[in-house]
Design a protein around this nucleic acid. Structure first.
Length: 268
DNA sequence: ATGGCTGAGCTACTCAGA
């Protein structure tokens, strides 16, 4: 197995909204030990940089690149490989929220741009929160266009807070007027795809109904009342490099879980 | 299925999440 991985030079990249890195630290460490990612994109770390548990990840072989914020939001990339050009200014955020961290990694001869996002929720609609979400995506799409002009190898992963299609939620009617399911927001997702990206899970699973998030309320997990809002988007150039894509439901079943579960990509 | 559950900051209760 080891030899096979080395020969193919497979890299495992995982995205997980952990809903607080400190409240979840043991779950995250356990998960890393069993899943062995090369890169782990975290969202909603809910802490400032100075309180991030760098040492605990360092002990198991990971460097942490952190864009934190007190109480809310915050993203990080954990890596056991060198990441270059870490950037926390991918867009200018009107509310100065920590939602995007980017970097670069080399995979064989390709230089790949890594973009880890935690998109705004946007509820309730008809408030400034929804406007912020729309405007955030507008800026994000504009920055993606600029990046594409320089590098056609791009991986965007994270919590998009968008239900792409009706199949991606347990009861679409309930979300068609919600900031996660409104057509206007789903069109933002399509707009990104139309720049030259694929939603990797949907590309590889045309009709599968799987979710990445289940509410803490009312036994949503037990009833499988979930939604698929965490995504891997790969630029056209990288599609031939996909080895696998998997939503790993196991962490959602643990004690003290995040409400999201990881999505795992292998590329070669 | 417009309720109820979780985390941070703080230490009573609000804000935010989706």
């Amino acid at each position: 197995m080891w030899l096979w991985l080395v020969i193919l030079n497979i890299m495992k990249i995982i995205s997980w909204n952990v809903n607080s890195v400190r409240a979840r630290i043991n779950n995250i460490l356990d998960y890393i030990k069993t899943s062995n990612p090369d890169l782990l994109f975290l969202q909603e770390i809910k802490t400032q940089d100075e309180n991030f548990p760098y040492d605990q990840f360092k002990k198991i072989g990971y460097e942490s690149h952190v864009f934190g914020q007190k109480s809310y939001n915050g993203v990080a990339i954990l890596s056991n490989k060198e990441i270059k050009n870490i950037d926390k200014n991918f867009i200018s955020d009107d509310l100065k929220q920590s939602r995007i961290i980017t970097g670069e990694i080399n995979l064989k001869k390709k230089k790949i741009e890594l973009i880890n996002i935690y998109a705004p929720n946007g509820n309730p609609i008809e408030t400034e929160k929804y406007d912020y979400k729309k405007n955030w995506f507008k800026k994000f799409i504009s920055s993606i266009k600029k990046k594409l002009a320089k590098n056609s190898n791009i991986i965007i992963a994270g919590d998009f807070n968008i239900i792409p299609e009706e199949i991606d939620v347990y009861d679409f009617k309930r979300y068609e007027n919600d900031a996660l399911g409104k057509l206007e927001i789903r069109k933002k997702f399509r707009e990104i795809l139309n720049l030259g990206f694929f939603d990797v899970f949907r590309l590889k699973n045309k009709h599968k109904q799987e979710y990445t998030f289940w509410d803490y309320f009312s036994g949503s997990w037990q009833k499988n009342y979930g939604m698929r809002i965490d995504h891997f988007l790969l630029s056209n150039n990288l599609i031939e490099n996909i080895s696998s894509i998997n939503i790993n439901k196991s962490p959602r079943s643990k004690i003290k879980p995040s409400d999201h579960t990881p999505i795992e990509l292998e590329i070669n």
